[in-house]
Design a protein around this nucleic acid. Structure first.
Lengths: 186, 186
DNA sequence: CTTGACAAACCGTCCAGACGGTATCTTAAT
DNA sequence: ATTAAGATACCGTCTGGACGGTTTGTCAAG
């Protein structure tokens, strides 16, 4: 019998804790490290407790997905408020998020998700849907070929950060960013 | 006792068959579908037979990787021979490969690999090394920020094709390609 | 008769999820 | 204010199956 059983119940907090741990574990040990046993144990909860919050493993991953896309959406909204130019506004906000992600704590969570995303057809579909929804939402301002190209480049940079496949020095990074912002405006 | 045991032995052919099947399976059922049992069975070979050719699962995945990067290298070399302009020559060849990949049979193999790549640190490192080697090889012609940006955009497009996250009509595709080729030259 | 190319059965481990409980909280009638 | 009656939030164990890898056996070719 663990402490969690006795302490004041805070289901929302436990839920959050489980998501955080799942993200951390997949960073440290790869996607294979995200097992129900490992997550529950590292979160100080029994396996049964984990399965109470998330009825199966996919639900846990989807929870992670929703959590992170939620954060992304808020960050994008915030970024868009600062941008006076309508055309390409969403694209620039998206770009900012990718550039800001590097080195941040949240980036870890995203790395996890990217990997899980590609592996699991169900999550792949969820991401597809998210992109489609944004495309619809900003069809008036961000549907040009130029904007699309910028977003693809941002995804490529994101992938490069995850794979660590390119070593890009900060100066080059900034140059590219400026060029991409430029492309989003024309 | 299966037929394979009796037919004329063609180890190289069996090896190739195993690689093809592994690629197909991961496309149809995701990375999780690539199990030793499934691959060997679908290739009409026993599990022992598979493990004769590839001593363990990672060796199978590495075999797949080498097979596909080999093809990529040959295609790039071919494409580079057609290009008279030195600056950005490799980048444009890389770009051509990504654009050509769409809808092709080989694309399936690459999709597999991308997923496996992200999941397995060992393969991630292998890809990192490949990129680093190319960067060294073409440092004189393709190391500008513009070329890097083009390659990142190509990777983004590649990712989009895998995830099917963006629906890009052929006309837009061609526009983007032209723009990227342009960027690689300046 | 040795060796390469398989087959087939088997092993140990790991893992998702089920299940049957117990403790704590909420609600509402008394 | 009490308290009975659920509802919610967990715990701990078990199981069935999958999976990577091993071992032993078989057969054909050189």
């Amino acid at each position: 019998m663990s402490i969690a059983h006795h302490r004041r119940k805070q289901p929302e907090r436990v839920r959050q804790q489980l998501l955080e741990v799942a993200a951390r574990l997949s960073l440290e040990q790869g996607a294979a490290g995200v097992t129900l046993d490992a997550v529950s144990q590292a979160a100080g909860v029994s396996k049964g407790g984990l399965l109470h919050h998330f009825p199966n493993k996919m639900a846990l991953l989807e929870g992670l997905f929703d959590d992170l896309t939620g954060k992304l959406e808020r960050t994008i909204a915030e970024e868009m408020r600062k941008d006076a130019v309508a055309h390409g506004r969403f694209t620039r906000a998206y770009l900012s998020c990718v550039f800001a992600l590097q080195g941040e704590a949240d980036a870890q969570g995203w790395q996890v998700l990217t990997i899980a995303l590609l592996s699991e057809p169900q999550l792949r579909e969820r991401w597809r849907q998210w992109v489609a929804d944004r495309a619809d939402e900003y069809v008036g301002t961000d549907s040009s070929a130029g904007c699309l190209l910028v977003r693809l480049a941002a995804d490529g940079l994101w992938l490069a950060d995850i794979l660590r496949s390119h070593e890009i020095d900060p100066a080059t990074r900034q140059m590219m960013r400026a060029q991409l912002i430029d492309l989003s405006q024309q």
